[in-house]
Write a protein that binds this DNA or RNA. Structure first.
Length: 297
DNA sequence: GCTTAACCTGGACGC
DNA sequence: GCGTCCAGGTTAAGC
């Protein structure tokens, strides 16, 4: 029988679990009625809870089936990135970020397993976050491997082989719609690449990695930037969706208001963020993105 | 180089 | 209830 005493505890992290896991980077985390966040990273299930009543916030965690895999947790949340140093720089560059930093202090960009991030964002085209979450959950439950935890069964993300041999009709029924054949063909295509090809893009520059990704049928600039940012450590990648476009027009570039998001305008928006926030532009963008999303709810 | 339509589908909204 | 619109895009065709 699992007891809470088996949870590890720390209280000195600059990490806001809720902000990070609900900021639209990852789609498979869920929260139990006891307030535990449940998710998986490759074959490891992670259980987290963060007390927001206490200061500093107490952070409880455990991994399954192998216990105490702190390196998996720390790597996933990229705890090596010195957020407080970034805050000091950003505040000097853009005052409008100050409020978002106050609200979401500890929001981090994740280092997700590339394969999961790659396929989850296939579902993002012309879709809503709620439906993306349902679609990816169904995909994992149908084709992934079960991982038992005291909080119930979680599922690893499916392997390339499992996705490559998935049934298009079944995927369509699981809310993937017209995206279903694309998932299968992309999985089949990735199987023709060298093993760990996606992971190897972490060693490439941002521009090199993005250039490789957009060569794949179904991957455009926005999805490529999401993959670069949320699993390949490209800290200056700034995915431009409808929300980021609106923020950019409002804060930085009113002249782009009403213009179609052509490749040239997309690139102009990217340049705007990168020139303002530099090496960690994608991180700065995530703070304003989350503030915008919460404003619309 | 820009615009447009097609691609699934469920939920929100107006009537 | 029912019709319409829209949502974290991409692609290809037409201009």
């Amino acid at each position: 029988m699992f007891t809470l005493s088996l949870m590890n505890t720390t209280d000195s992290l600059c990490l806001d679990v809720r902000a990070t896991l609900t900021s639209g980077q990852a789609f498979r985390w869920r929260q139990s009625s006891e307030g535990f966040w449940l998710g998986t990273v490759e074959g490891t299930a992670i259980v987290l809870r963060q007390s927001v009543e206490e200061t500093p916030h107490r952070f409880e965690w455990q991994t399954f089936p192998v216990a105490n895999q702190w390196e998996v947790v720390a790597n996933y949340f990229r705890l090596e990135v010195p957020l407080e140093e970034l805050y000091a720089v950003w505040k000097g560059v853009e005052p409008s970020l100050a409020e978002a930093i106050t609200r979401f202090r500890g929001l981090r960009i994740l280092r997700q397993p590339p394969q999961e991030c790659f396929f989850a964002f296939q579902c993002a085209t012309c879709n809503t976050v709620v439906k993306i979450e349902r679609s990816v959950k169904k995909l994992a439950e149908r084709y992934g491997e079960p991982i038992e935890t005291p909080f119930g069964t979680l599922y690893s993300f499916p392997t390339l082989s499992a996705l490559a041999s998935a049934d298009e009709g079944v995927l369509r029924g699981d809310l993937w719609g017209y995206r279903a054949p694309r998932v299968i063909s992309l999985a089949q295509h990735l199987l023709t690449k060298p093993p760990l090809w996606l992971e190897s893009l972490r060693e490439a520059s941002y521009l090199e990695a993005k250039a490789e990704l957009v060569l794949l049928h179904g991957i455009g600039a926005k999805i490529a930037d999401c993959i670069c940012a949320f699993c390949l450590d490209k800290d200056n990648a700034t995915p431009v969706d409808t929300h980021i476009r609106q923020i950019t027009c409002r804060l930085f570039r009113p002249d782009l208001n009403g213009k179609s998001l052509t490749p040239r305008v997309y690139e102009e928006v990217v340049q705007e963020w990168q020139s303002r926030f530099g090496e960690y532009a994608g991180w700065a963008q995530q703070y304003l993105f989350l503030a915008e999303m919460q404003k619309k709810v």
